[in-house]
Design a protein around this nucleic acid. Sequence first.
DNA 1: CATGTTTGTTAGTAAACCTTACGAACGGAA
DNA 2: TTCCGTTCGTAAGGTTTACTAACAAACATG
Lengths: 391, 391
Amino acid sequence: MTATGASRMIQDRALRPTAKGLPEHIRLNNRILVLQLLYRAGLQSRADLARETGLTRVTISDLISELMGENLVIELGQRQESRPGKPATLLDINRVAFQIVTLDLSGHTRLRGAVLSLDGAVLSSSGLELSGARGEAAFNKVAELLSQVIASATAPILGVGIGSPGIVDRAGVVRNAPNLGWRDEPLQTRLQDITGLPVRVVNDANAAVLAEHSFGGADHDLLLVKVGHGVGAGLLIGSRAILGERFAAGEIGHVVVGTDDGPLCACGKSGCLEAWLSVPRLTSAIQAATAAAANAADAELATHQILTEAGRRLGIILAPIVGALNLLEIVLSGPPELLDGPLSTATTQTILSRTMATETGDLTLRMTEQGQDIVLRGAAVMVLSAQLGVS
Amino acid sequence: MTATGASRMIQDRALRPTAKGLPEHIRLNNRILVLQLLYRAGLQSRADLARETGLTRVTISDLISELMGENLVIELGQRQESRPGKPATLLDINRVAFQIVTLDLSGHTRLRGAVLSLDGAVLSSSGLELSGARGEAAFNKVAELLSQVIASATAPILGVGIGSPGIVDRAGVVRNAPNLGWRDEPLQTRLQDITGLPVRVVNDANAAVLAEHSFGGADHDLLLVKVGHGVGAGLLIGSRAILGERFAAGEIGHVVVGTDDGPLCACGKSGCLEAWLSVPRLTSAIQAATAAAANAADAELATHQILTEAGRRLGIILAPIVGALNLLEIVLSGPPELLDGPLSTATTQTILSRTMATETGDLTLRMTEQGQDIVLRGAAVMVLSAQLGVS
DNA sequence: CATGTTTGTTAGTAAACCTTACGAACGGAA
DNA sequence: TTCCGTTCGTAAGGTTTACTAACAAACATG
């Protein structure tokens, strides 16, 4: 028995198509490929792009002229380098021709908004107090802030990106967001209708992990744990976000930690991660310990213990996840004065001691480099990805 | 500020291309699409396929004639149904023209091999005692069994699929398999050179989860826990296998369970999942308890307790994973007399009680329906997927 | 028996890529 | 200075793919 002419290796590229292919899909594919290269590296000639993509100079020229027609790409004069041959014309994404508007709805009391450049830099930002608004009132606050931010843009807007707390489905419907009092709120569609702009709504932790991935540079699988009023996570595997069957992936706040009970949680269970790790719980525990302490050294010690125990609890939850997914990179987002120190040290230690060292030896756990704007920037990544295929 | 002509929604289909697109890729895409439909549903006419795919009858006809030329598709006479119009010519994958050869190397003492039809049915099987062979000797045993099985095929062989324990990379190199004494063993390449057939080597648990996905029917994200001499898992998200950064995804056997210590594990830590749940540990614990019991009822009770506690420990490990990935379907593979009963009941209970009920309420945990042949059938899925793009 | 319907094929068109060829612009050598 | 090789970008023509339009074959029905 021998191999047959019928058998042909199917490359990874084409596995499991779910839709028919048409010539124009090739064009779109290559268009995105070119935009992606220009977006990441910038300042390349048509010939450079041809070499990198494997497409011919002819095809690249054609694509570029299309992109220049849309004002997405511009020529930036000739390369100065002294080489034989006709000098190359340098190209780049037209980074000032468009701007991106994003909102971060994850603050417990305050909504934030910003205008960003295509590079993800925050050009201007503003905010609006939620003042306890819920349901339709909260929606109106969001719409109000959005129109403010849109008005402050100084270039055509590529799209609007929004990071919302709670469970958000692929269509941008907020299935459930207790803080804002939303159930099945079709935020994306409604705001799209109001503004006439393309809008993308995603979960805040998912936006955050996208920001970390795109602007942090590393091409690893990534888990981002966002600690705030609650605890949530965003997960990126193979450069794509994991949403979960019911769009609730990353909702680890109410998973029970360990086998020795723990503090009572608002959800009714004991020992939930959120009951150990949320910002309100940590600050109040530290405050209480400090108040009860005899002196500054005691207070310091008690604080250290509280943070270490919280970090250990986080590590206990993360260890099975790290093992099951063979993760090598975990990022924390939240108040650095709480997370960056004993807490993160304890988390790393705990994960390493509870998993197989040979597989997780080079695990990295660190604070995000995106700071407070992480959700705003992640929402911008969503827009870039949706509108241009770039990230 | 308004939306611009430049912005265009990029559909999910084309997100993040990593390679250039060419006209022939369209053809491959559509070819796979057609094969997939025929493989799954079977017995359709060209016109049916055109309607389902959205391609025209002309294009379908052309594709079908290509596939018939390769003997992959055959005509099966005309549809008998009484309808107006010219009767349809029914088509199907030529399910008897090719066979698949697969090996399961995950048995602790015995290698298994089989010839399967394109449908994944086991046509014949054989085995070979490992007799403690390790390293090159183990490789020779594998090669010997493989040539036996290949010789017993009765039709051209589409390809060879192999499920191996240990850590297997994307190129089919067994990075580390302690049981077989392999380190960086390029199994796929070597066997491909020997046999002249396309060979695919994957981790046994990953093969198993593919089998469960393809033949189990459900289109959910899936976690399969394989309990044997060790404990491993295979994970499928969005119909694609998760391998992990170092190809060690699913290696949860040596993750520590709970915060109350536990049995000492061979790896040096205390309370590893494998130290609670592996088949040798369960059987010996049950044997000991039975021997020590005063009567049959006591023995029964002790056995029940041992299995319940093991199931609870599995649940403790799985709860964070289920929460983080928002999984709804977990499958157990292994000796049903151990797993199917108190153990799986306790696991389900534990997961539900340790996660947020609203998100995991409709969690399913069940035994596999694939039985002993799960790895053999999963390896066949790999071959189908690699050679035809079908699964 | 005529009509309408469905199937599968033939002929010609549009879109996307490719190959081949060429002018333009530069550095370096005769 | 002049010539030559190199590199860049563009032009012209060919190939592959899928599409539209049209048609013959085969059937059910009034």
